[in-house]
Write a protein that binds this DNA or RNA. Structure first.
Lengths: 208, 208
DNA sequence: GTAATAAATTACCAAAGAGTCATTAGCAGG
DNA sequence: CCTGCTAATGACTCTTTGGTAATTTATTAC
């Protein structure tokens, strides 16, 4: 108020991304229904009217959040598979490590929790998510495992089930952390756990 | 209408349980915020006024749902540990199988998904859930693994991390099924997957 | 400087749904 | 059969919040 700078600025290009980021945080934290658009607007540094300038309604904003946040992350893993030279066990570890890494700093992995919570209320978005994100991730891991089996590196297990077994622990631990960070006092080092789980997967629990 | 039976009955003792069951189904399916008390009442065969006869408000109903549904299930596993005679690997399988079984028919396992979605909106309930359900389950599995290590059945791994690795796949698959049953077309036989995961845990993925 | 523009605000509306309470009616005891 | 008790109803209020639109103001071009 003391300086005479403008009360707000026109930033047409930057607004949508800022609103989506604010919405991502709040949706992941409180859920879709419990998040107020007024709060999204405030956190994005605008007012509710501005949100409606860029998104038709709350549901469209939700869809935009999921789409914009997820899509950039999908493809890099597939490139890793295409370009890989070493053993399949190595690639498996690279994929898990990269994933654990991303979980530490990127808010985008919170989408998993969000989709789990809201899938039944947004069937079409759930279908999009399952097809474009989940299926592609599964296929990536399943291919690595299948090639490992073909190369004689892995025992001949069912690659579909093995994929689930490989992915689940990291996935759940992230979802869990997202939900119970306030009360679950057992701290988890994501990367250390990823390594532990990888080695358990490879060697098994039984003594020899 | 044709017969002259009463329009409703007085069933003071039965109502709370019926309302809780209806609420459990709807909360798990649609989430807390998206569930209308009118719908809960209808599904329980009463009207909204009756719900408020037995529960102070929506939040208290939610807490009652979590408490009443979970508590009966906790203790039986602990008894299994106390009474067990065979190997620890056997007990591990018994616990997993029993869990997979229960997931098939009991709605109570849907609580996991519900708590994941709503934990941040109900911190005190989340704390109750983590302490009374999660921690106790973890402790149960960790004890079995520790004893298996002591007995020389298992390699000397970190039992806390191993517990997470053992529990996560089944847990996530259940949560997932709960959320994406409509669009994730890959069918999962819970018991078969439990067996697969158990054997993978025991033997490992690497060929010898 | 000034006028035209459109980005952003603010005050508003309407629907939905949580929560209330006066009334109704099932049921047990006399 | 009647009477009292209270479980259950259903119409009501009030708050919350998604959504709208008239108004304001930053910005740009001349």
């Amino acid at each position: 108020m003391d300086t005479n700078q403008p009360r707000w600025q026109r930033r047409k290009d930057a607004r949508p991304a800022e609103i989506i980021e604010a919405a991502l945080t709040l949706f992941v934290d409180k859920g879709f229904a419990a998040t107020r658009l007024d709060d999204v607007a405030t956190q994005a540094g605008v007012t509710k009217g501005t949100v409606y300038l860029y998104f038709a309604n709350k549901e469209e904003l939700f869809k935009a959040v999921v789409r914009e946040t997820i899509l950039p992350n999908i493809e890099s893993g597939e490139h890793l598979l295409a370009d890989h030279q070493g053993t399949w066990a190595e690639l498996l570890w690279i994929l898990l490590e990269r994933w654990a890494d991303r979980m530490e700093y990127s808010a985008s992995t919170g989408i998993s929790k969000l989709m789990i919570a809201e899938a039944s209320n947004f069937p079409d978005l759930a279908r999009f998510y399952v097809e474009e994100v989940v299926m592609r991730s599964r296929k990536l891991f399943a291919t690595v495992i299948q090639r490992g089996i073909d190369a004689g590196e892995f025992r001949p297990v069912d690659p579909v089930m093995a994929t689930r077994a490989v992915i689940s622990p990291l996935m759940l631990i992230k979802v869990w952390k997202q939900s119970f960070s306030l009360c679950d006092t057992e701290p988890v080092d994501l990367k250390a756990f990823a390594r532990f789980h990888y080695e358990l997967m490879m060697q098994g629990l039984a003594s020899r």
